[in-house]
Every structure is written in structure tokens, then in C-alpha cells.
């Protein structure tokens, strides 16, 4: 898919904020010294008075975000996933989730594709941390178009949410205005490719890898169903049950630890409702290191090839 146009989901987030800021005057965007990386700088330029810079203080940003949201605003608070979900965790729990504050935690640079910055900046735990919080929605978009669509829906809805966005460019999967794009709904999985031999349930950057894997599998006579499970919470149980019943083998693919993330969320559903064999592709309980994103994905087993292998197991 080398010749496909690539855009990072954080870029789409930045554009969304500028557009949505025109629509809603009560939108406040917050930064912790990463506006350029988080792509919130476009909003800052367009609406400087509604941009709150917190400096290198992620914990303070999250509690302030709660205070601003509880004063009648919708707030987008951004940092790297490591700091938004990790460092500020207990503040997100007690001041945002427990209060049901209308704060959208929009974390960029999730996963191993942060690349050269290395282990201290590569998060594989954020989805696990966020999805155990009551009332917190967790969304991991696969590409630019779906990022904007899912964000619009979620920002129109009152309450806390966590968006996991990436640093690196990802291939465009959805086309703006298409039938597929119009079917994207928070909390509802989207079936990108049909098939009943195996189901690949993926999110984030792994959706493109899952599609590539499905095409490879097709050449080998295996018809794989590819499901974009962009919303990890609330998870689309029906789509998982159908996949389990109709395909008999589920491969989950995520740029996250296989402990606690999408794979675990899928397994929680199948274990209780329709036991099914699951093979998990993701980070296998280890820290990362510096390298180019593609090199790291290969080393840590998160490529289309790894999905193919898992599907054929």
C-alpha cells in the first residue's frame, strides 16, 4: 500500500478542531507544551482566546480541564498518550471520569510508531488504563476520515472520552462522503471486508495492516472478515458474537499490549457469550526501543505478515 496517500490521525484531529471550533464557541482546547506535535496549534492560531496553554503540567491540565468543562464547556485536552493516560491517570479518573466532565482526552503519539523517541515515549497501556474507567468512552480511529467523523459524533455528545491518535501517517481507508464513511458510528464496529474463514478485529494503524493481511490470505484461499473496531468502549458485542459464530477464529490486531487492550476486550465478550479461539497480535508484554516505525512494527510483531501468520494458526 506504499502508493496510497497517508495522513496521521493527529493531523485529522488538528483539522477537526479548527472546523469544529467555528461551529461551537464553547470548545476549549488545552495543551501541555505539545501544540505542534498534538496538532492543536491550528486551533490556537484560529481561536487564541479559547486555547489554554498549561505548560509541562499534564496533571494540572486534566484537573483544569474538568473545572472548565464543569463550567459549561466542551474541552479537548491533549498530550502524548504516555502522559495523558499514564502520568495524569488518577486525575483523569477522579476529576474527569468520576465527575462525568465533558472532557475529550485526545492523546497523540500512541503505540510503538512513535519510533525514534524510544521506550519512555511508546505507550502500550493507555487503552487498558482508559477502558477500565466507568463512563469513559475509548476510541482508536484507523485513518484521517474516520477520525474526523468519530470525533464529530463524540464531541456532539456530553461526557468524557479518550481518543488514541498516532504520530505517523496511515493509509486512507475511508473516503469522505462514501457509504462506508456514513456508516461509521461510535460504538458500532464497521465490517470493511467480508469473509467467514477467520475474522480480523483491528483498530488504529492495525486496520490497514489487517486489510493487507486479508488480501494476502485471499490469495491463499482464506476469506478473512476485517472489522474496524474503532470503539473499544462501549464495544460492539454483536459484531464480536457474529464474528465468533460465523468465523470460528478471531485474530485481534492492535498497536498496544495484548494485555488489557482490544484483544482483551474482545476476549471478555467471547469468553462470556460465545467461546471462540482468539489469536492476539500486539505488543507482547515488553517495552519498546528506538527505531523507525516500520522496523519496530516488524521486530515487535505488528505487521500484516504477523496477522497472516496468526490467521493461519
Amino acid at each position: 500500500m506504499a502508493d496510497v496517500k497517508k495522513t496521521a490521525t493527529r493531523e485529522a484531529y488538528g483539522k477537526f478542531l479548527v472546523e469544529y471550533g467555528a461551529e461551537r464557541e464553547d470548545l476549549i482546547v488545552m495543551s501541555a507544551d505539545l501544540s505542534g506535535s498534538n496538532k492543536t496549534d491550528g486551533f490556537e492560531k484560529a481561536y487564541p482566546e479559547r486555547f489554554i496553554e498549561c505548560g509541562i503540567s499534564e496533571q494540572d491540565m486534566m484537573a483544569e480541564a474538568a473545572g472548565i468543562a464543569l463550567s459549561g464547556h466542551v474541552v479537548a485536552a491533549s498530550s502524548f498518550a504516555m502522559f495523558a493516560a499514564g502520568r495524569a491517570y488518577e486525575i483523569v479518573r477522579n476529576s474527569i471520569a468520576h465527575t462525568k466532565a465533558n472532557v475529550k482526552v485526545c492523546a497523540t503519539h500512541g503505540g510503538i510508531t512513535v519510533g525514534e523517541d524510544g521506550a519512555t515515549h511508546q505507550t502500550f497501556e493507555d487503552i487498558a488504563l482508559m477502558r477500565v474507567l466507568p463512563d469513559m468512552k475509548v476510541i482508536v480511529p484507523a485513518d484521517a476520515v474516520s477520525t474526523k467523523i468519530l470525533m464529530k459524533q463524540e464531541f456532539d455528545t456530553d461526557g468524557p472520552a479518550y481518543f488514541r491518535l498516532g504520530r505517523s501517517g496511515v493509509p486512507e481507508i475511508y473516503i469522505e462522503g462514501s457509504d462506508a464513511a456514513s456508516q461509521l458510528k461510535v460504538g458500532k464496529a464497521y465490517e470493511i471486508m467480508e469473509g467467514n474463514d477467520v475474522a480480523i478485529i483491528a483498530n488504529g494503524i492495525m486496520v490497514a495492516a489487517a486489510m493487507e493481511a486479508a488480501m494476502e490470505l485471499r490469495e491463499r484461499g482464506v476469506k478473512a472478515r476485517v472489522i474496524d473496531m474503532h470503539t473499544v468502549k462501549p464495544i460492539d458485542e454483536d459484531a464480536i458474537i457474529r464474528a465468533a459464530e460465523e468465523c470460528g477464529h478471531i485474530v485481534t490486531a492492535e498497536e498496544h499490549s495484548v494485555i488489557g487492550g482490544l484483544g482483551s476486550a474482545v476476549a471478555e465478550v467471547t469468553a462470556q457469550k460465545c467461546p471462540c479461539r482468539i489469536t492476539m497480535v500486539g505488543q507482547h508484554d515488553c517495552f519498546g526501543e528506538s527505531g523507525k516505525p516500520a522496523e519496530l512494527l516488524k521486530k515487535y510483531g505488528m505487521t500484516a505478515e504477523d496477522i497472516v501468520k496468526a490467521a493461519l494458526q
Binding site: 476549549i28 484537573a63 473545572g67 468543562a69 464543569l70 463550567s71 459549561g72 477522579n94 476529576s95 468520576h98
Partner: peptide, 23 residues
């Protein structure tokens, strides 16, 4: 606002005061 985990209420109050300035 719900409080109990120390320090957070102070920071949230700063957020509230910022919101009132904006509004």
C-alpha cells in the same frame, strides 16, 4: 465538584476561574 484526592480540587478551581474569565 467531587474532591477527595488531594490537590485536584485546587487545580480544578483554577480551571473554573479560567472558564469564568473566558465567559
Amino acid at each position: 465538584i467531587s474532591t477527595g484526592s488531594l490537590g485536584q480540587g485546587f487545580s480544578a478551581a483554577v480551571g473554573m476561574a479560567i472558564a469564568d474569565k473566558l465567559d
